[in-house]
């Protein structure tokens, strides 16, 4: 899923400084699952903003809404009435959701309440970590199901580098060396010889370096 984290409250307060009526819009997709932008977080942020503004002696009216998904126009449009009443919309969706919102409501100020951080998994409640970099050309078949693009600090395709120690990356003792994990797994699968081959230079154009990406399925288009 897409992982996001709430922006620092100071930054959000600064963003909404000149507005009196705010609509906070959550998303019940990825950001709800990672406890950042679902209905619960919308109410927490709403309360926090009201407290902060009350303390400043500046009134604020906050309306709250959560949509099934903010990355689809049909769902975003459902917020139309509430959007009309607001000076600005504070979206707790990922960056894609924020932009879809802005696209559907051209004349409305739309602000991001979250920082979209990565594509990842839930390791345990309260802990998420990165797994995929969305590079557009999956190589997991060649790397034992562990991605060096997303999980090696240097994105090495022929790792590990000389900084791998005790299974950890040179940048931090809290970061696993993914190449150690790849080697461990290939050893278990008795396929270590896969790494003797030199992995060729990567084509980064599907990774976004070929310009913004788009996918079209003719069979689904109406």
């Amino acid at each position: 899923m897409i992982i996001a984290e709430m922006k620092p409250i100071e930054e959000i307060l600064d963003m909404i400084r000149s507005y009196q009526r705010i609509l906070i819009v959550g998303c019940k997709g990825c950001v709800a699952v990672c406890s950042t932008g679902g209905p619960k977080e919308v109410s927490v942020l709403g309360s926090l903003l009201r407290i902060a503004r009350k303390k400043e002696g500046r009134d604020i009216v906050i309306d709250e809404e959560s949509l099934d998904r903010q990355c689809e126009p049909e769902f975003v449009d459902l917020a139309g009435d509430k959007v009309a009443d607001a000076d600005a919309v504070l979206s707790l969706a990922c960056g894609a959701g924020v932009q879809m919102f802005a696209e559907r409501f051209q004349d409305k100020v739309v602000l991001p309440g979250c920082n979209t951080t990565f594509l990842g998994v839930t390791e345990e409640l309260g802990v998420w970590s990165e797994r995929c970099a969305g590079c557009g050309n999956c190589i997991l078949d060649k790397t034992a199901g562990l991605c060096p693009i997303a999980r090696c600090s240097k994105q090495l395709l022929n790792g590990p580098c000389g900084g791998s120690m005790n299974g950890k990356c040179e940048i931090s003792k809290d970061v696993d060396c993914v190449w150690q994990l790849i080697i461990d797994r290939l050893t278990r699968l008795n396929r270590l010889e896969m790494l003797e081959e030199i992995f060729p230079v990567k084509d980064w154009s599907p990774a976004g370096h070929g310009g913004p990406r788009k996918m079209v399925r003719e069979d689904l288009k109406t």
Binding site: K40, S43, V44, S47
Partner: peptide
Amino acid sequence: IDVIHILRAVE
């Protein structure tokens, strides 16, 4: 007790 309960009390 959730975060929101405490915040509501303060609010």
